[in-house]
């Protein structure tokens, strides 16, 4: 009896740890996106200050390619839109993960109690 519960506990614990790993992975991904967001916002602000007198170049590999100002603005705007969307996506994903993690924690603690009872030890003496 106790052994079966122990096995289950072990499996659940592993699942829980995996979930924690996933959460921290998503966190760092979101963090990266936020950095990109700041970077692109700065570029957008700069491009907004320009007029048709200024020539814009885009660095592609080792070459600078002349680019239309409006085109550059559109690209950056699109990028910002995409990054914002991704951040939103991660936000909801993380919320969902946190919720699942909370649920899992409860499952774990009840399993732990069950295990201790099965071992005949008084609950809460660990």
């Amino acid at each position: 009896m106790a052994e079966a519960i122990q096995k289950k506990l072990q499996a659940e614990l592993e699942k829980y740890q995996q979930m924690q790993k996933d959460v921290s992975k998503s966190m760092s991904a979101r963090h990266k996106l936020e950095t990109q967001l700041t970077e692109n916002t700065i570029v957008k602000d700069e491009l907004d200050l320009l007029d048709s007198e200024n020539t814009v170049y885009k660095l592609i590999g080792p070459v600078l390619v002349k680019q239309d100002l409006d085109e550059a603005k559109a690209t950056v705007a699109k990028r910002l839109e995409y990054i914002n969307g991704e951040i939103q996506r991660y936000e909801t994903l993380l919320k969902e993960m946190e919720r699942k993690l909370d649920q899992h924690r409860e499952v774990l603690s009840s399993l732990q109690q069950e295990y201790q009872r099965a071992q005949g030890r008084p609950v809460g003496k660990v």
Partner: peptide, 16 residues
């Protein structure tokens, strides 16, 4: 030629 970030370079005059 000024690097404004994310691979974009802009030609500006000295004052700008």
């Amino acid at each position: 030629l000024v690097d404004v970030g994310t691979g974009y370079y802009v030609e500006k005059n000295v004052e700008e």
